Amino acid sequence: DETGKFLVLALYDYQEKSPREVTMKKGDILTLLNSTNKDWWKVEVNGRQGFVPAAYVKFL
């Protein structure tokens, strides 16, 4: 149950560059965990948590 969690859509592919980031593919649906930083949002994708560039995702 994803109640209270926001979902975001990956607009572009992103390859993680550090262990704190996660890789996503364009079209992936991600669970948004934290968006307090304007540049990097914490998400969960494929069972992994990490950061992606905020400009690469949008709210569903």
Rank of each mutant, 00 (worst) to 15 (best):
K38N: 11
K58L: 11
G47C: 06
F6L: 13
Y12I: 10
T23E: 04
L9E: 13
F51A: 02
V57H: 00
V22R: 01
Y14T: 01
A55M: 11
D28Y: 04
V22E: 00
F51M: 09
K58A: 14
E2C: 13
R48E: 06
Q15R: 09
W40Q: 03
W41H: 03
W40N: 02
K25L: 08
G47T: 05
L9W: 06
N37E: 11
M24C: 06
L60Q: 07
N37K: 05
A54Q: 05
G47V: 02
L30R: 00
V43N: 00
L11K: 08
L60V: 13
L9V: 15
K5M: 12
A55V: 10
F59I: 15
L30Y: 09
V57Y: 01
S35Q: 11
W41R: 02
E16F: 05
Y14R: 02
A55D: 11
E16Y: 04
G27A: 03
K42A: 09
T3I: 14
D1S: 14
D39E: 12
Y12V: 12
P53M: 02
P53L: 03
V45I: 15
A54Y: 02
E16N: 07
G27L: 03
V22K: 01
D28T: 06
R20T: 12
Q15Y: 15
S35A: 15
D13A: 05
V8K: 01
W41S: 03
Y56L: 13
W41I: 08
E21N: 05
S18Q: 08
N34T: 07
N37L: 09
Y14F: 08
L30H: 02
K26M: 08
L30D: 00
G47S: 06
V8L: 15
F59H: 10
N37H: 13
P53D: 01
G47Q: 06
L32Q: 00
F6I: 15
K17P: 04
Y56C: 08
S35M: 14
K58W: 08
A10T: 03
K17C: 11
L9R: 08
V45L: 15
Y56D: 05
D1H: 15
L32M: 05
L30F: 05
L11H: 04
K42F: 15
L7F: 14
A54R: 11
T36D: 15
L7Q: 12
K25V: 10
V45G: 07
K38W: 06
P53F: 02
N37D: 15
S18F: 07
K26Y: 05
T23K: 04
V45H: 15
V45A: 13
W41K: 02
V57N: 00
T23Y: 03
V52K: 00
P53A: 02
A54E: 03
L30C: 10
A10H: 02
R20A: 13
E44G: 06
L7M: 11
W41Q: 01
R48P: 01
L11E: 06
G4P: 15
A10S: 05
G47N: 07
N46H: 12
F6V: 15
K26A: 14
Y56W: 06
K5P: 13
E44S: 09
W40Y: 07
I29M: 07
F51Q: 03
K58H: 10
T36S: 15
D13I: 02
K5L: 12
T31R: 14
N46T: 05
A54D: 00
T31E: 09
V22S: 02
D39V: 13
E2D: 14
G4E: 13
L9M: 13
L33R: 03
L9A: 06
V57F: 05
E44A: 09
K5A: 12
D1C: 14
A54I: 03
G50T: 01
A54M: 05
G50K: 01
